[in-house]
Design a protein around this nucleic acid. Structure first.
Lengths: 148, 148
DNA sequence: TTCTTAAATTAGAATTATTCCAAAAGGAGA
DNA sequence: TCTCCTTTTGGAATAATTCTAATTTAAGAA
C-alpha cells in the first residue's frame, strides 16, 4: 500500500479527493516557489487531463485556499483601488466587504499587526510586497536609457 | 488671478493640464481616504463631464501614478498568483516583468526594506496589507453562524 | 493672436481574467 | 450496489482593463 502524500494532504484538509485535485496539488508542490497562476496550472495539468476545465482549476484553487493549502499572493484582486498620496501608512483590507482602511504607519506596528488586531479590525493575515525592479529588468532599463 | 491648486499640482508634476485631469484630481482629493476605484471616479466626474470616457479615467490614473500624485493600493493586479510555501515570507515583485521572488521574513527586514535594496532587487516601494474582517463584517459573520 | 505639433480624449471594439450555470459524472458511505 | 451530495465540465456571461484609430486640444513658437 503506497503512500500518496498529495492524496493524504487533501484528505486531511477535509476535502473530497479527486484525480484533478491531486494533479493540481502535485503541480503546485513541484513548482514550489514559482507563484503559479490559474492559467499556468491549467496548462500544466491539461497535459495529464486533456478534458480538464479551467473552471475546475479556479474552483480547486479557491477550495485549496479556503482550507489553507495554498495562499493567494495578491489577494487584493478585483478592482484597482487608489490612494491619494499622503504620509506612509498601511492598509487594512476587509476580506469580506473589501473596505480598505488606513492604518498609520509605525515601525513597531508593522511587526505587531501580524499578531494583534487593530481597533475593531480583526487581522487574519499580513501581506507585504516589495515593489521594484529585478536585476534583469534593471539591466534592460539601463540599456534602454543609453539608447536615448 | 485665482490660484487653482489642482491645476498647479498637475503642472508641477510635469503633465499637460486638461479640464478632465483637473476634475479627476479634484474628485480624488475631495474623497481623501476612500481609496476610489476607476469606476467610481468615472461616475463622479461624469456628472461634470457627461462625455467623459472611461478610457480617459484609466489613462489619467496611470499618468497620475507615474508621476507620483497617487498610488495604487493593490498593485499586484492582473492575474491571481498563488504560493505553496509555508514559512512566512515577503514578496519582491518586479513592476516591469511581474516576477515574484520570495524574500525570507525577518522582523528587522520589514522596516529596512523600505530604504535599502535586497540582493539584486531594487526596491522602489513597499506595500503592506493587513487582511481580515472589519467590525461590520465580523458582526455579520457572527449572526450568520448563529443561524446555522 | 494664430499656427503647429505632440499629447490627450473619445467611443467602441477587443482582450483578459474570472465567475456563473445547468447538466453530467464521480466519490464515499450505507 | 445504491444513493446522495459534491465535483467537474464546457460554454456563456460578466467584469476589468487595454487597445485602436479618428478627433480634439493644450501650450509653446511665430
Amino acid at each position: 500500500m503506497r503512500v500518496d502524500s498529495t492524496h493524504e494532504l487533501i484528505k486531511q484538509a477535509g476535502l473530497m479527493v479527486t484525480p484533478q485535485r491531486v494533479a493540481i496539488l502535485e503541480v503546485l508542490m513541484e513548482e514550489g516557489t514559482g507563484h503559479p497562476s490559474p492559467e499556468w496550472v491549467y496548462r500544466q495539468v491539461s497535459e495529464r487531463f486533456p478534458h480538464l476545465s479551467l473552471a475546475t482549476v479556479y474552483n480547486t484553487l479557491d477550495r485549496f485556499e479556503e482550507v489553507g493549502l495554498i495562499r493567494k499572493v495578491n489577494p487584493l484582486f478585483g478592482v484597482a483601488r487608489y490612494d491619494v498620496k499622503s504620509e506612509p501608512h498601511l492598509h487594512a483590507v476587509c476580506t469580506s466587504c473589501g473596505e480598505i482602511r488606513d492604518v498609520p504607519w509605525n515601525e513597531e506596528l508593522v511587526v505587531q499587526t501580524a499578531k494583534s488586531g487593530i481597533e475593531a479590525f480583526q487581522v487574519q493575515s499580513v501581506s507585504v510586497h516589495l515593489l521594484g525592479l529585478c536585476d534583469a529588468c534593471r539591466e534592460r532599463e539601463k540599456l534602454k536609457n543609453l539608447g536615448k
